[in-house]
Design a protein around this nucleic acid. Structure first.
Length: 644
DNA sequence: TCACGGAATATTTTT
DNA sequence: TATTCCGTGA
């Protein structure tokens, strides 16, 4: 290799990593087991390509989260130099956003589109359901949340709603007509109001690349090297986008681990990674099997769990760190006892000087940690919860954002609705009238000033009219507008939330985020596609990584991370695997991989706990069997304990 | 037409 | 348990 290189690749990489990093042209599939230096490999490859003179912008690095891509580019910059920061990429969704803003015209829609999140999607569905009289007066008609899930799944899997209902929601079969009608209405609504949901970002990008040969050729030529992380969790649309982008150069490197595919519920296709070599005939396959993260006893357990999987690329993780504690499986007398056990262990670990932020408690679903959170608060152990509810999803944040959204896109009726119904005496009916009047004027958000309204309602509306009269995106900074909006909103906040002091702090946080943006559109886009990911107080502090707090996380949000000690709680059949998955082979497989992902997060210690029984309210059944995945683990691989 | 209270209902994971 | 939907009184 190039002897003038400043990076000593061969010394710092193992042979497989080295081969992947030095790999030059053509399709490459890297099967990277958990903790096998996947990020490292991608990082070095970026550095290597840049070092060799590839223009950074010609490298497209697509990742699952923004955090992942930023981390890789930072590390690459540290290895080489700041040119690595210029590499193109981010998440699929943010990449799609960037491209679509540029080329939206070609698809006949405005590049000023607004991206709607799941909650917006649900509001629209609710609205349309009422308007269209779908499932009118029927209490068993699916809830808007469920409908949103169905619609999104249909979009992601490129199937009709009929097929989704047939496969996953049999009990809604009688409503099929109305569901399908609502789906059509929803699609039309988005077009009418210049809105794109998450799924649309991918769908429109694919359409752009398919229909517009010019654009495709240009992009496929510009991006000389494609690199994709977490390939096992891409869906078919994403795969097709890649195929289209790889058209010219065929320099496509995908990295992933089929055993860690945990997003099938939102349309991810393990097939993508399994069939990659068929799609690209001359694919080189490199396996990374040496694990640098965990001690061997942890890996033995993980291997035992994944051995039960039905089909996969066979690989067995091994570590040079042969010695270590056996993982412990603990049955506890109750849910609260489970929390107390975790707490006791955390105390022990603290005495051994393990920092809190090196300990994580993982669980299947957000609500599984409620009891633990209460205990932690009681014992004053600082923690941060990742996954589950998001900052940007809380009502007060959405309220403020809605004001900004109508400034950006005056067609965003859902946001108008939200803003208007916050006001006293104005409910859905009145709001709708006002919105219609606004539409008729067609003068953007400023039109609210001239709205004529019954004098009895004037008192309610005029503060808002004054507010919008004073705002002007052309002359004011985003933060300045934000401040006015927050001032307008504070009285509403105080009258509708008991915990308004906490919430107004959040609003201050929001304002400080706004200061980092100079452009309304990019701010709103980021809040939609890449919102701050944690909940609980002070979540937005820039020093989240620095401060020393215990991590609580869903397993999904723990992907790619590692800790000194990991607890997996609620390993109870019906909780994990989830009740929902018990009767479906495919979903059960995914639960198994989820357990595998969870176990492989641990470096030194792994504790798996479950209460001996729990009552499940939803089904009215008693859960009293340990997670079925635990029975695949040979007894000699674990310590077993009981605490009552 | 709004605001509020009570009853019914369905529970996962996220860009 | 929390949300959402519907009926009722103002």
């Amino acid at each position: 290799m190039n002897t003038t290189s400043s990076i000593r690749y061969q010394e710092v990489l193992n042979p497989s990593q080295y081969e992947a990093v030095l790999f030059d042209k053509g399709p490459l599939l890297v099967i990277a087991g958990a903790g096998s230096g996947k990020t490292r490999t991608l990082t070095y490859r970026v550095a290597r390509l840049v070092e060799q003179g590839t223009p950074p912008a010609a490298i497209l690095l697509l990742t699952f989260t923004r955090r992942a891509s930023q981390e890789m580019l930072n590390r690459a910059s540290a290895l080489l130099d700041s040119r690595c920061e210029e590499v193109s990429g981010g998440t699929f969704h943010s990449f799609a956003n960037t491209i679509l803003r540029r080329y939206a015209r070609l698809l006949n829609f405005s590049s000023g589109f607004t991206i709607i999140d799941r909650a917006d999607m649900e509001s629209i569905i609710g609205l349309l359901r009422k308007d269209g009289g779908f499932g009118a007066g029927d209490r068993s008609f699916p809830k808007r949340q469920t409908l949103a899930a169905v619609f999104s799944k249909a979009a992601n899997k490129m199937l009709d709603v009929e097929e989704i209902v047939d496969a996953d929601y049999q009990h809604f079969f009688p409503y099929l007509n109305d569901i399908a009608g609502l789906y059509d209405a929803y699609q039309a609504y988005k077009v009418d109001h210049t809105l794109l949901d998450f799924d649309d970002l991918l769908i429109y990008l694919r359409r752009l690349l398919t229909e517009q040969a010019e654009v495709r050729k240009r992009l496929a030529g510009d991006f000389r090297y494609l690199m994709v992380d977490e390939y096992q969790d891409t869906n078919q649309i994403q795969a097709e986008i890649l195929y289209l982008l790889a058209e010219t150069n065929q320099n496509i490197m995908v990295v992933g681990d089929d055993s860690q595919s945990i997003y099938a519920f939102r349309g991810a296709e393990v097939e993508n990674i399994l069939s990659f070599p068929h799609r690209f005939a001359d694919t080189t396959i490199i396996r990374l099997e040496e694990n640098y993260r965990s001690v061997q006893p942890v890996l033995n357990l993980a291997n035992a769990i994944i051995d039960g999987a039905a089909y996969k690329y066979t690989k067995t993780l091994f570590s040079k760190r042969k010695k270590g504690n056996l993982p412990t499986i603990v049955q506890t007398g109750s849910e609260n006892r489970q929390s107390k056990f975790v707490l006791d262990k955390i105390m022990d670990l603290s005495l051994q000087n393990v920092p809190l932020n090196q300990i994580a408690v993982l669980f299947r679903a957000g609500f599984h940690s409620f009891d633990l959170e209460i205990e932690l608060a009681r014992q004053q152990i600082p923690f941060i919860k990742v996954g589950g509810f998001k900052f940007a999803e809380s009502a007060h944040i959405k309220d403020v954002l809605a004001h900004l959204k109508v400034i950006h896109n005056a067609d965003d009726d859902i946001s108008w609705m939200r803003i208007l119904t916050l006001l006293k005496k104005i409910g859905p009916k009145t709001a709708r009238k006002i919105i219609q009047a606004l539409k008729a004027r067609g003068s953007g958000f400023h039109g609210i000033k001239e709205i004529q309204i019954k004098s009895s309602l004037l008192k309610s509306l005029s503060p808002l009219q004054a507010l919008f009269g004073s705002l002007d995106p052309h002359t004011m900074s985003l933060a300045a507008m934000g401040e006015e909006i927050v001032n307008h909103y504070l009285p509403v906040l105080q009258s509708s939330f008991d915990d308004h002091p906490k919430r107004s702090k959040d609003l201050e946080q929001l304002l400080s985020i706004m200061e980092r943006y100079d452009d309304l559109e990019s701010f709103l886009t980021d809040m939609a596609i890449e919102p701050p990911n944690t909940s609980q107080d002070q979540t937005l502090s820039a020093h989240a990584a620095v401060d020393n707090r215990l991590i609580l996380s869903t397993i999904h949000s723990a992907k790619g991370l590692e800790w000194h000690t990991v607890f997996i709680i609620w390993a109870l059949d019906g909780r994990f695997p989830s009740m929902h998955a018990l009767h479906k082979a495919g979903e059960l497989e995914e639960e198994r991989r989820l357990m595998y992902v969870a176990a492989t997060r641990a470096k030194e210690n792994l504790f798996i706990t479950y209460p001996f029984q729990a009552f499940d309210r939803s089904t009215g059944s008693l859960l009293n069997r340990p997670s079925r995945f635990l029975s695949d683990i040979p007894l000699e691989l674990v310590d077993v304990d009981t605490v009552y």
